[in-house]
Each structure stands twice: as structure tokens, then as C-alpha cells.
Amino acid sequence: MKALLGVLLLATCVCEGVEPKTALLPPCCRVALDLGNPTDKSLYLLDSTWTSDVGRKIKLGALRGRPQIVAMFFSHCEYACPILISELKAIEQALPAEVLGKVDFLLVSIDSRRDTSAELAAFREKRQLGRKRWTLLRAESDDVRELAALLGVNYAEDARGQFAHTNLVTLLNADGEIAFQQTGLKQDPALLIAAIGKAARGAQR
């Protein structure tokens, strides 16, 4: 009887399309798959600890199994980052349904000082980044510097707390290897979208 009730409740949720905000965790924070050791060039070899906007501490390897579309940003950005986020959202809109169901988006803050997990959570709300596909992470500055160095993102902070940084979108395949990179804003996203489609075929979940 209880089980039946549970099924009914679950069905109700799904039918009404109510997003169970407290229940749905971002891609970083769901049950990780055991896929063995990362490959030789996998970013998931990094051992650094990251904190999600939902407060959970993870290793990047938690994202393994699905391609990730990655950008580095900071929430106080006045110039390029808002455009970058909008462009990522446009890519999300442009992806065909069968691809969209197999990729996630990852935003990593370069502002270790101000971007606490609470700040990131506020940013998620403000920019309407759904938990279904979007992960927002922060870490200590050395760990951020290391990830940026691997992606090829250069950055420096100015006196106003604005960061000059490379605008770069990186596609990681399901194994965490760099599959494609697009530099600069306002580029034709066709190549990136094609690369995402290809990477999605390698998704393991």
C-alpha cells in the first residue's frame, strides 16, 4: 500500500511537471558511476576538491560518464561573462533533444574569494540555470589555477575585483578529455554543436 502510494505521489510530481527543487541535485552531485581509472589525458585525474553551489564537496571525476560543456567565469563579472553564459544557454537551446539528454554544462568560478557556494546558488537563480544540466563549482585559488592551466584559461584580477580572463568554451568528452575548444565570444557555434553531438554518442549515462 505504501509503495503504491509512493508511486502515485511520484507520478503526480512527474505529471504536473513540478520541479522538485530540493530533491534534484546538479549533475556533479548525483551517484557517481564506477568506471575504473581515468584515461591518460583525463582531467578527472585531478585530485582537487570542489564545492558545488548546493554545498556538496566533490572531485571532478564525479562528472564522469557524460560530456561536459565547460566555461570559467566569475559571478561579479561586468563585461564578458554575462555574454558567455547567454551563449552557453543559446547552445543548450540549439541542441537536439537526443543530444541534450546526454550532456551537462559546467561553470567554474575563478573568483575563489567572493564566489562562495551561496553566491553561486544566487547566480544560478539569477541566470535561471536549471539543476538538471548545470553544475556550478568553486575551489581554492591554487586548484582553480591548476584547472585553468589545463584548459588554457589565463586570468588576472584587477584592483576593482574584475578578472581579465580568456573566454573559452571547452567540451570534455565522457572520459574527461578535452574534445573541442572554442575561443572568444560571438563565434559561430556550428562546430561546437557538431562536436557536442559527437561526444554525446560516447555518453555512458
Binding site: 563579472c77 563585461y79 564578458a80 561573462c81 589555477r145 585553468a148 592551466a149 588554457g152 584559461v153 589565463n154 586570468y155 588576472a156 584587477d158 574584475q162 578578472f163 581579465a164 580572463h165 580568456t166 573566454n167 575561443t183 572568444g184 565570444l185 560571438k186 563565434q187
Partner: peptide, 29 residues
Amino acid sequence: SDFNSALVTGDARGDTGLERQLFCGAGSL
């Protein structure tokens, strides 16, 4: 340790369109 804090533009005046798109704040370097 922070070799990747160097942001260089296509030319020293940092005013080419492409590079401005590539780097946030590049035009002000």
C-alpha cells in the same frame, strides 16, 4: 606558479576585434 596570469593581445595596443573577444578586459591592457 601563476604563469597563466599573463594575458597577451595580438598587438600591444590590444585593440584588434578578435583579441578583444578572446580576453575579457583586454582592451584596457
